[in-house]
Design a protein around this nucleic acid. Sequence first.
DNA 1: CGGACTGTTGAGGAACCTCAATAGGTGTGG
DNA 2: CCACACCTATTGAGGTTCCTCAACAGTCCG
Lengths: 246, 246
Amino acid sequence: MKATVPITAVGLKAACAQCNLVELCLPFGMSDSELHRLDDLVGARRKIKRQQPLYRAGDPFEAIYAIRTGSFKTDVLLEDGREQVTGFQMTGEILGLDGISTELHSCNAVALEDSEVCVIAYDRLEELSREVEGLQHQFHKVMSREIVRDHGVMMLLGSMRAEERLAAFLLNMSQRFTARGFSAAEFHLRMTREEIGSYLGLKLETVSRAFSRFQDEGLVTVQQKHIRILDNAGLKKLIQHQQRAC
Amino acid sequence: MKATVPITAVGLKAACAQCNLVELCLPFGMSDSELHRLDDLVGARRKIKRQQPLYRAGDPFEAIYAIRTGSFKTDVLLEDGREQVTGFQMTGEILGLDGISTELHSCNAVALEDSEVCVIAYDRLEELSREVEGLQHQFHKVMSREIVRDHGVMMLLGSMRAEERLAAFLLNMSQRFTARGFSAAEFHLRMTREEIGSYLGLKLETVSRAFSRFQDEGLVTVQQKHIRILDNAGLKKLIQHQQRAC
DNA sequence: CGGACTGTTGAGGAACCTCAATAGGTGTGG
DNA sequence: CCACACCTATTGAGGTTCCTCAACAGTCCG
């Protein structure tokens, strides 16, 4: 019953110009002529099965990845078994930027569902972004956005209470689903309570209880991983502080 | 008695080739010929008095900054007055990367002591890094390092307990002082207990108590902001998990 | 259909926070 | 140079939030 195909099957070449994720992804804002030069850059696609790693901490860094379908989590594991989820990534988002600094990946990227990524060889990205101004600029923005996002998470972990954290998490998910053309009010979480908890610096029981309380208060409907937001404003009110990107 | 000079006095041009911080700063790893091209890039220096902001959240983004002397904190303020310190920066470190993504700064950078920075106009940095490969590469590494560092803080905030956080903080400071040629065992913290607490997701009283416990256990000597590490291994043991960069 | 994984709920405890009093340090102006 | 005010740090007592442990229910998958 063992699968004989390698987990990392190599697929067709990507074509950014034809991809409907352009607006969410690395090529955003680039001109048509610039866009076509990316076809040299974006190599093969790679399929990753649910629960399988795209890369692991310590792996040599060679490429960054744009998510074509599916979703991922990134995490850091500690010697004593503790796990810190550092992010959840959806289609169009870029994985692997952590590897540039030491030329080794510093965290694990694991598929939350069967997924597919576009492989972007890093040396070629540097090469091309020396020639294509729009690519260079957009790449820098992507990295900067990751920094800003991380600051937001630090804010969440450092200064907010359990219910505020979960509310912020739900609103963030809702917003990202919206950007991808899905419903803002109703969606399916791909991660477990434990993974949400790890991301939010909470135990899974605390996440579960917070969900239940939100449901009792009529803010959301929760059925396992299926979430329906009933009172968006109510959730926003929970996080008093203006919800900036940072 | 009021100072008549503007807070942001413009000084001499920087000269990376002559600067003793080269190994810690943006030009790291660049060849001599590449290095000299930076003189075009690094514009004026700017002095910032203690407690004064280098930039604020919402300011238009135009430049990044390399710290020449002194130190800074970056933070995000919430509507209700809560502050989250997102980092402490020392000489040679780069400030302002958060601004690239939206072309507005997303946090505040405040001097912890009288400081001086090199101003690096961002559009010229992009321009020059299209021509100077070493600059491009090093700039990307700097951004990536920031992401990895942020993941480390998320780990700290999400998975560690008060004493572990403070131990990790002290070891990190010690290591950074060492890299700058100062003593690893004895140093002067530039930030208050409240700022440390904000950074570590703790209240200032908790930080103070943890310091006292460390002192009782013979790990450190604490006199206000003056720290002496007596038992480095003991601190390391406190954070069970291997202390990786991430 | 059975087993494993995932999620919910309860009871009790630990870690950290809040409030408060006090001491120590720093800087300014008389 | 001292006195005062203000800021910073320490310490204690009591409270709250979240964690731990545990039992059980629901769901998914072979």
